[in-house]
Computed example of a mutant assay.
Amino acid sequence: MKDPDFSRAQWRKSTFSADGACVEVAYAEGAIGVRDTKQDGAGPILVFDEREWAAFLRGVQAGQFEIDELTA
């Protein structure tokens, strides 16, 4: 996958975000970007294709990424 251009992407963050604990996601050119909101767009962007993102979301919905699961 070539590097997608996120410069005009519509970045979104969760309404559950608070106290600087938030990330933003955006869609551009068939890819999903994830970035740290605190970086104000200047930090790195993690890029996932649609299949990777869908697999991640299924894992989130199944509770596989809860803190107690990650530390086990």
Results as ranks from 00 to 15, higher is better:
residue 1 M to G: 14
residue 2 K to Y: 12
residue 3 D to E: 15
residue 4 P to R: 10
residue 4 P to G: 05
residue 4 P to K: 09
residue 5 D to P: 05
residue 5 D to C: 12
residue 5 D to S: 10
residue 6 F to D: 03
residue 6 F to N: 07
residue 7 S to I: 02
residue 7 S to H: 01
residue 8 R to Y: 08
residue 9 A to Q: 05
residue 9 A to R: 04
residue 11 W to A: 02
residue 11 W to T: 02
residue 13 K to N: 11
residue 16 F to P: 08
residue 18 A to F: 08
residue 21 A to P: 00
residue 21 A to E: 08
residue 22 C to D: 13
residue 23 V to Y: 05
residue 26 A to S: 01
residue 26 A to R: 00
residue 27 Y to R: 06
residue 28 A to K: 01
residue 28 A to D: 04
residue 29 E to C: 07
residue 30 G to P: 02
residue 30 G to V: 05
residue 31 A to I: 01
residue 32 I to V: 15
residue 33 G to S: 10
residue 37 T to H: 09
residue 37 T to I: 10
residue 37 T to V: 11
residue 38 K to H: 02
residue 38 K to T: 05
residue 39 Q to P: 05
residue 44 P to Y: 01
residue 45 I to G: 10
residue 45 I to Y: 03
residue 46 L to R: 12
residue 47 V to S: 04
residue 47 V to T: 14
residue 48 F to K: 06
residue 49 D to I: 09
residue 49 D to E: 09
residue 51 R to W: 14
residue 52 E to Y: 12
residue 53 W to F: 05
residue 54 A to V: 12
residue 56 F to K: 01
residue 56 F to Q: 02
residue 58 R to H: 12
residue 59 G to P: 01
residue 59 G to C: 02
residue 60 V to R: 08
residue 60 V to L: 09
residue 60 V to P: 10
residue 60 V to D: 05
residue 60 V to E: 03
residue 60 V to H: 09
residue 62 A to V: 07
residue 63 G to V: 11
residue 65 F to Q: 10
residue 66 E to D: 15
residue 66 E to T: 12
residue 68 D to S: 10
residue 68 D to T: 11
residue 69 E to A: 13
residue 71 T to V: 13
residue 71 T to F: 13
residue 71 T to P: 02
residue 72 A to C: 12
residue 72 A to D: 13
residue 72 A to W: 12
